[in-house]
């Protein structure tokens, strides 16, 4: 079994694991983690496609490699927005909880 096939199977397993995590986990932050696991698997699948397309003296087909680089950056942006949303939601809820507990208005309600 060559490297491409082996890592391809690895990618397939990662996709399955990530998908499972996204659906089953409750906490949004864990869903975001699972999304990144899944993304890693998808990118590895791209990678083995690139590897199989090695030609013209290159170690791999450059097109899928470039797509993965774009994809990684997009996935990071997505994680950043999602994480910020989670933290903001947490803070707003905390502020509301503090306000409810103490009675006087919390200053951080934003």
């Amino acid at each position: 079994m060559n490297a491409a096939t082996l890592f391809g199977l690895c990618g397939a397993v990662l996709v399955g694991l990530g998908l499972y995590g996204i659906i089953v986990h409750h906490e949004p932050i864990r869903k975001i983690l699972a999304f990144n696991l899944l993304g890693g698997g998808v990118f590895v699948l791209f990678g083995i496609i690139a590897r199989r397309g090695a030609a013209a003296g290159f170690g791999g087909d450059p097109v899928p490699q470039a797509l993965v680089i774009t994809g990684i950056v997009v996935a990071f942006s997505a994680s950043a927005v999602a994480v910020t949303l989670v933290m903001r939601l947490f803070e707003v809820n905390e502020a509301a909880r503090r306000e409810a507990r103490s009675g006087h208005s919390a200053e951080d309600a934003g």
Partner: peptide, 19 residues
Amino acid sequence: LLFALMGSVLYLLGVALIY
């Protein structure tokens, strides 16, 4: 966002297979 992200990843997976 979480629905949309899951949607994008599945779409991207399909793109990989087609390429």
